[in-house]
Nucleic acid binder design. Structure first.
Length: 983
DNA sequence: ACAGAAGCTTA
DNA sequence: GTAAGCTTCTGTT
């Protein structure tokens, strides 16, 4: 190696893990062999090897090597036995890929370097030194912060997944210190992943500031006494040794006695047939073709080769047709819309869903997003041309830009659309110039007038032969509906992702784009600022707004192309089409209707609560002797357990005294006066701040009703969630709290009807676990908790003491929550041994439930997800954690998820079918709210008696015809003027 | 201005 | 023991 030469060192081991987690899983079509990380690796290496066309890194390599960890044991374990001790075993579907990636390296004709006793990082450090001494430059292909200490004049880094170069300025920007101080910085901050201790309480910001002040770690440790902040000073003095050992651990060894020299790394052109043989074996269609073209190899002539696979492929779950029951049922809403959808997803290449989805994914992650064809449309003629093209294509991604995240308050500022990847446009409608705030004018010139633009847009959005692709479509449906436009048919990328991957992260556009496209869309704050400097989107410069909004539509379309075929490949089309998509317009209507809330009632309650709280405050101050902040758990704990010396345990993980209601109740029961008053005060202030004071602020200025927002893709189990305001946690348990419900009222001449499922989760349990006693009890309409108690304790139901029934009830709930002795003991305030004995006895009497629990755990462990009876999948990626408490938590959650998720699916089905049933019966009742197992309607008084049987019929038969349950469902329904009396 | 903890409301 | 969202306080940015 000589001056001017350039060495590429790929951190192979680092890349494997990063690719595995960042890229979507991929399995070889012929046998399911997991290959996602291998494909990522091959794509990356291929890109890096493209000689002169390689503009990503900016230099052409002359030398090239891929470095791997040999094993997890290294010299650092002798230094500090706990080093990397908390590393769990790699995921099962990654194991075979380690070997395959080494074989890929060889197929690329690249040296594959590893050495026993040393990490890849040490080998990289050593080769960096050797290259530098020979006068050459080095680029490390990695983004691992542990390698940043090596960055310098001749050494740079390159992050292949984010396409980003890392030099000295980038290190300073990210960590606040230059590369040569990275070792000291890491010594202070430690690393929880590698189990490097560091100094507790010191994060990167503090560490950088300290190193700035004291120069380096030794200087800091020598003069630690000068640190002003008390806690920080004490922590550094007490943990000086930990810092020193951490420094040894993070310092890379640059004098490893390596076997291969730099001259062994001279880059050779790949051997086309050899490389293609490997790629064909992996079934990487697109990459094989690209390599064939670039190397001039006829790929048809090349034979697939034999590869060595560690551990046979046992780790992949059921695929097509495994989960959802294959029961035919009519599809409400299916029709021309479905036809449009089918036209759009007709495979253009490949002939199976799995192959198509693999092809789509590869295509999506291969190319960078080209923004050069994004345009701002400033006149009606251009808009018409784009709309015509969209109609011709039959598929268009659509997104709105508005003044508010609340669709009921949002005014349109513009909209964007994408017709093909890279072909997207933004239509500004109401952008204003900066100083129009007082005059209200200031509309920027050359924007299509809102009325005209919407008139042109409406036919397309309502066209049954054009599929609209939207991220979080409910928002746009509400906004457009307020302009008299009914968006249909549609697909929603957020909901598709939710059906595919519930439990594996969020389903926002940014998260999905990162995950599937490897692309981070521009964040809104880059345009509109944040906090104090936040401006309305209408103030954003039109060209910048256009780039942002067009990118949204473009990314949405690209995501749809990747995600939609995956539904078919995973057998989840029916979940999406029956449980998810049809619910969107139903919820949009519910949100738009809102519910009447009586301002006067809330105002009166607020006054009463204020009075009560003030009285209690005076009494509390009298008992304490000073005017403390009762709302501060910290001050409260210090007074109660510090100064007053009450008996009680310091609990919370931050070392604070716990002042939980349970603990204060216990103290009150022992005769202490203060805790009782604190509990009462908390109840009153909670009701006041969260409900009586907050709710009036949500009354809409025009409709004078409260419009909650339902999230369809927020929970892991399939439940909805409600926010702004949350109407799913309006108080009901206490008499005081229930008064809030009296403020939720029906319009004049109307009634509220509340219909709720009785014991739905226990009924689901009886059905899925096939428990004869429980099924019979539900069929008889018996008291299920009493029956449970009777079975367990051999006491007759007649004249059963309420305490006995209470315990059985707690156990029944415990089962639904994935029972543990610890939890049951807590709930019943009994010793854990006693709780264990109850559980044991319960399982003896109901062995089917124990079998069900064990089967669910085993299933979740094998496949990484569980399914509801309707085929909805809920993922638990951590179920195989080596940490017993994480594993146990995931087991309990997966047991609960099948029950909670099935119940959620049932009420979803009821909601989807409700409006049509009411209409058919000629009833005008309107669904307003959903609270997990309850539906609230508003109906004219004269129709109340006719409405209840229809509602009950739909809800009780909601599982049909997809599933016929062995247990009857039961719905209680009643009507009243307010929610309290109706419930 | 924001993030996390603690606490409390619901099914 | 499951699943959520909102308010207040507290410490950091």
């Amino acid at each position: 190696m000589k001056k001017g030469d350039h060495l590429f060192l790929v951190d192979g081991s680092g890349y494997i893990f990063r690719a595995y987690h960042a890229l979507p899983p991929l399995n070889r079509k012929s046998d399911g062999l997991p290959t996602g990380a291998v494909l990522g690796f091959c794509n990356m290496v291929w890109k890096l090897m493209q000689d002169a066309r390689n503009t990503d890194v900016g230099v052409v390599p002359t030398h090239f090597a891929v470095i791997f960890d040999y094993s997890s044991k290294t010299f650092r374990n002798d230094l500090y036995p706990e080093y990397k001790a908390n590393r769990s075993a790699p995921p099962e579907d990654l194991i075979p890929q380690f070997g395959l990636i080494r074989q890929a390296t060889t197929a690329f004709n690249l040296p594959c370097i590893e050495m026993e006793g040393f990490e890849a990082d040490d080998l990289i450090a050593t080769y960096c030194r050797l290259a530098c001494e020979a006068g050459g430059d080095t680029t490390i292909i990695s983004s691992d912060k542990d390698l940043m200490q090596l960055v310098g004049a001749t050494v740079g880094m390159y992050d292949p997944m984010k396409d980003r170069q890392i030099g000295i300025p980038e290190v300073v920007e990210k960590w606040g210190v230059p590369p040569e101080k990275m070792i000291d910085l890491q010594a202070l901050t430690g690393d929880s992943v590698d189990n490097v201790p560091g100094v507790p309480g010191i994060g990167p910001k503090t560490a950088a500031q300290l190193l700035e002040q004291f120069g380096d770690l030794d200087g800091l440790l020598a003069r630690a006494g000068e640190i002003k902040q008390e806690k920080r000073r004490e922590s550094i003095i007490a943990n000086a040794d930990k810092a020193r050992i951490s420094r040894e651990l993070v310092t890379l060894k640059n004098d490893v006695p390596v076997a291969e020299g730099l001259d062994d790394f001279v880059l050779h052109a790949p051997d086309g047939p050899k490389l293609i043989g490997f790629l064909k074996t992996m079934e990487f269609t697109a990459l094989t073709r690209r390599v064939g073209e670039a190397t001039g190899t006829e790929i048809g002539d090349v034979q697939a080769i034999a590869v060595t696979i560690e551990r046979a492929d046992t780790a992949h779950g059921p695929d097509v047709g495994s989960g959802a029951p294959a029961v035919a049922e009519s599809a409400p809403g299916a029709g021309p819309g479905e036809a449009a959808s089918a036209k759009a997803q007709a495979p253009t290449q490949g002939d199976t869903p799995s192959l198509l989805s693999a092809l789509r994914l590869e295509a999506a992650s291969a190319g960078k997003i080209d923004t050069s064809a994004f345009v701002a449309i400033r006149d009606a003629a251009t808009l018409k041309a784009w709309l015509a093209e969209a109609k011709e294509t039959g598929v268009v991604a659509f997104d709105t830009q508005t003044t508010s995240s609340d669709p009921m308050l949002a005014d349109l500022i513009g909209f964007s659309m994408a017709i093909a990847p890279g072909r997207a446009a933004y239509v500004p409608l109401a952008h204003a110039s900066g100083n129009g705030d007082l005059l209200g004018g200031g509309l920027i010139d050359n924007q299509v007038p809102v009325r005209e633009a919407l008139a042109l847009l409406k036919p397309l959005l309502e066209d049954r032969s054009v599929l609209k692709i939207v991220q979080d479509v409910k928002y746009d449906i509400v906004v457009m509906s307020r302009h008299g436009i009914d968006v249909a048919p549609f697909d929603d990328t957020m909901l598709i992702s939710y059906v595919l991957d519930a439990g594996t992260g969020h389903h926002t556009l940014a998260a999905l784009s990162e995950k599937w496209l490897g692309h981070a869309p521009t964040p809104l704050r880059d345009l509109a600022g944040s906090g104090r400097s936040l401006v309305g989107f209408d103030q954003v410069d039109i060209d910048r707004a256009a780039a942002y909004a067009a990118e949204h539509a473009d990314v949405t379309l690209r995501l749809w192309r990747v995600l939609k075929p995956r539904l078919a490949a995973k057998g989840l089309v029916s979940v999406y089409e029956r449980l998810e998509r049809p619910l969107v317009p139903v919820l949009a209507r519910m949100e738009q209707r809102g519910i009447s809330v009586d301002r006067q009632i809330l105002s009166r309650l607020s006054g009463e609560l204020a009075q009560g709280a003030a009285r209690l405050e005076e009494e509390i101050y009298g008992l304490v002797g000073e005017r403390i902040n009762i709302g501060s758990p910290k001050q409260l704990g210090d007074i109660l357990f510090g100064r007053m010396g009450l008996p009680g345990g310091s609990k919370t993980k931050t070392g604070q005294w716990s002042t939980s209601a349970q603990l204060l109740e216990d103290l009150a029961a022992e005769g202490h006066e203060l805790p009782r008053k604190i509990v009462d005060w908390r109840q009153l202030t909670k009701l006041k701040s969260t409900y009586t004071d907050a709710l009036p602020g949500f009354i809409h200025p025009d409709t004078r009703r409260v419009h909650t927002s339902y999230a369809l893709a927020a929970t892991t189990t399939g439940r909805l969630s409600s926010s702004d305001p949350n109407l799913q946690n309006i108080p009901v348990r206490t008499a005081e709290g229930r008064k809030i419900r009296t403020a939720f009222i029906a319009d004049k001449g109307h009634k509220l009807v509340s219909a709720d499922y009785s014991q739905i989760e226990l009924r689901v349990l009886a059905h899925v676990a096939e428990i004869p006693q429980l099924t019979q009890a539900f069929a008889d309409g018996a008291d299920i908790h009493a029956i449970t108690a009777s079975e367990m304790f051999n006491v007759p139901v007649e004249g059963m003491p309420s305490e006995v029934r209470r315990r059985a009830k707690a156990i029944n709930f415990g089962i639904i929550y994935g029972i543990s002795a610890f939890g049951l003991a807590n709930q019943l305030s009994i010793p854990r041994e006693e709780a264990s004995a109850y559980i044991k006895r319960y399982f003896e009497r109901f062995p089917g439930i124990r079998d069900y629990i064990e089967a669910t755990k085993a299933y979740a462990r094998e496949y990484g997800f569980v399914e509801t009876i309707f085929g909805r999948r809920i993922h638990y990626p951590e179920i195989r954690s080596s940490n017993p408490s994480i594993r146990a938590f995931n087991e309990r959650a997966s047991i609960n998820a099948r029950l909670q998720g099935t119940a959620a699916d049932i009420i979803r089905r009821a909601m989807v079918h409700m409006d049509e049933a009411l209409e058919k019966a000629g009833l005008s009742a309107r669904m307003l709210l959903q609270v997990h197992d309850e539906l609230i309607f508003e109906t004219v008084e004269a129709e109340v008696e006719a409405t209840i049987p229809v509602v009950r019929q739909v809800m009780e038969h909601a599982p049909m015809p997809a599933v016929s349950m062995s247990v009857p469902l039961h719905v209680d329904a009643r009507a009243a003027h307010n929610w309290d009396e109706a419930h």
